[in-house]
Design a protein around this nucleic acid. Structure first.
Length: 500
DNA sequence: ATGTTC
């Protein structure tokens, strides 16, 4: 019983009215608000909320409290941040970014979230939308058939213990070596598709057993696979560097580490809620369970988290392979001929040790991004060579039936937000509320009337993920563009979507 | 997000 209480997200907003948010923040400049030290006791740094005037009114007061709560944690650098798609999460707000000193700071599972290394990848094609539209129903059916989706869905691939370990240790690199992709794929993944330091001995049997049958599945909720086309280019030169042009068909894959990541998060929340007491860290909310960055407990979590992160990259890689096969089956040409190469794969739920400049000095910090996308600038060594002059591709998925965006990272992101930008649209109502307001069949009919084909494992997911339950992705993206932490390159619109 | 309140 105590466990389920721990995992429930407290509704911190009940004691406030929505309009109270205006009294909690101080405008520093356009799209940039401060939550001053003193909002709650023991804040070590101020909070920062990157949001427009209009989006501010949709932010729950509890989200502001969560940003302030994170600002009390040991070793936090500069300020506790949240992106324009911020909303209530477990402990840390979703949309939150926080960097901690690698010696004096902490590591917290709540700063990463349950879906460890949830992320987005985008595959280019040489196809034009006119070639795909007549086949979109067949293609969407084929994708739905080949890529398992839905809660508890099982993969076509039955991972052995050894193969699971390989996925934990080497992520997308292992998947490519196992025949699920081409060598160039890993070059276009954040961290080349796997992070060093993962240690499966810190992953529970329960997490392994959940992960084994799910390697190569899409999952549920806001996860999706979408056939899209480029409908707008904001910057011709950057788009051309990313290999994008108007009318071109792309495929976006949005998913994470499934039950494995979820179980690893659950396991270590329990571990670290003990550790936080043992190390006498005072936290304003028990959901902020954490441990000193170099402690055994924090490092064990980190090694297990890396396993889940690598699993997620392997997962997206296997899905990529079956996406290529699906296109080959429908168009009768091989994937290479169809130009189906990877534009990029970027994480938006992960903690990483990165070098950043703080107070004019370079230092290593544990950056926690929870619903925030890495957005590294031009010239950064971790940006693939062909994009080096432009910056890292930042992939922002829309909600079902709405536009997605391709942006690029910037120097401003390094200066302002530890190299981070937003991650998506952000919910405006709960799943339960969504099911009251929308009917799956109506939502589907509306989307199909706009020429968007939907295939979902269960009709309720269509209601839960209806376009109306999300903030406008355009509005969110405009904030990061105006702040300069990521720049708009292109917009893509959906043609066919598969969902859990 | 999630074997959707082990």
């Amino acid at each position: 019983m105590a466990e389920s209480e721990d995992i429930a997200i407290d509704d911190l907003s009940t004691e406030y009215a929505k309009g109270d948010v205006r009294n909690m923040v101080r405008k520093l400049s356009e799209n940039n608000w401060e939550i001053p030290i003193g909002h709650i006791p023991n804040m070590r740094v101020p909070g920062r909320l990157f949001v427009s005037e209009n989006l501010l009114d949709g932010i729950e007061p509890g989200t502001i409290d969560q940003i302030a709560n994170v600002a009390t944690l040991p070793g936090i650098q500069k300020y506790s941040m949240a992106m324009p798609d911020a909303h209530l999460g477990y402990g840390f707000a979703i949309g939150g970014v926080a960097a901690f000193d690698m010696e004096e700071g902490i590591i917290s599972p709540g700063g990463v979230g349950f879906d460890i290394n949830c992320g987005v990848r985008l595959i280019r094609t040489k196809l034009q939308k006119e070639e795909v539209i007549p086949n979109i129903k067949t293609l969407t059916d084929e994708l739905f058939k080949n890529i398992p989706a839905g809660v508890g869905s099982k993969s076509r691939f039955r991972a052995s213990d050894k193969e699971l370990d390989c996925a934990f240790l080497e992520g997308a690199k292992w998947a490519v070596e196992a025949g699920y992709g081409v060598e160039a794929d890993t070059e276009y993944c954040e961290a080349n598709g796997y992070m060093e330091g993962a240690d499966p001995s810190h992953v529970s049997t329960k997490a392994r057993n959940r992960g084994k049958p799910q390697l190569g599945t899409l999952g549920s909720g806001n996860h999706f696979l979408e056939v899209q086309y480029v409908d707008k280019i904001y910057d011709q030169e950057m788009a051309s560097t990313f290999g994008l042009e108007e009318g071109q068909v792309t495929v976006m894959i949005h998913c994470g580490s499934r039950g494995a990541g979820h179980q690893i998060c659950t396991d270590y929340l329990k571990e670290l809620s003990k550790a936080v007491k043992d190390h006498k860290i005072e936290i304003p909310d028990k959901q902020l369970a954490c441990a000193p960055a170099q402690s055994r407990e924090a490092q064990n979590y980190f090694k297990a988290m890396l396993c889940a992160a690598n699993y997620a990259w392997a997962n997206r890689q296997m899905i990529t392979h079956w996406t290529r096969e699906s296109f080959e089956n429908v168009f009768g040409r091989d994937a290479e001929d169809l130009g189906m190469n990877l534009l990029y794969d970027v994480a938006h739920n992960v903690a990483k040790l990165e070098e950043h400049t703080v107070d004019g000095k370079k230092k290593e910090v544990y950056v926690h991004r929870k619903g925030a996308t890495r957005a590294f600038p031009p010239g950064h060594p971790e940006v693939p060579a062909v994009y080096r002059d432009v910056g890292q591709p930042v992939l922002i998925p829309g909600s079902m039936g709405t536009p997605s965006f391709i942006l690029c990272g910037s120097k401003e992101a390094m200066d302002i937000s530890f190299g981070s930008a937003c991650h998506g649209a952000g919910r405006v109502m709960s799943r339960a509320q969504a099911k009251k307001e929308f009917r799956g069949q109506n939502v589907k009919d509306n989307l199909e009337a706009q020429g968007i084909t939907i295939r979902a494992a269960h009709p309720s997911v269509i209601a839960e993920e209806a376009p109306g339950v999300y903030k406008s992705s355009s509005e969110v993206v405009n904030v990061v563009h105006e702040l300069g932490i990521a720049r708009k390159v292109a917009r893509v619109l959906p043609l066919g979507v598969t969902k859990g």
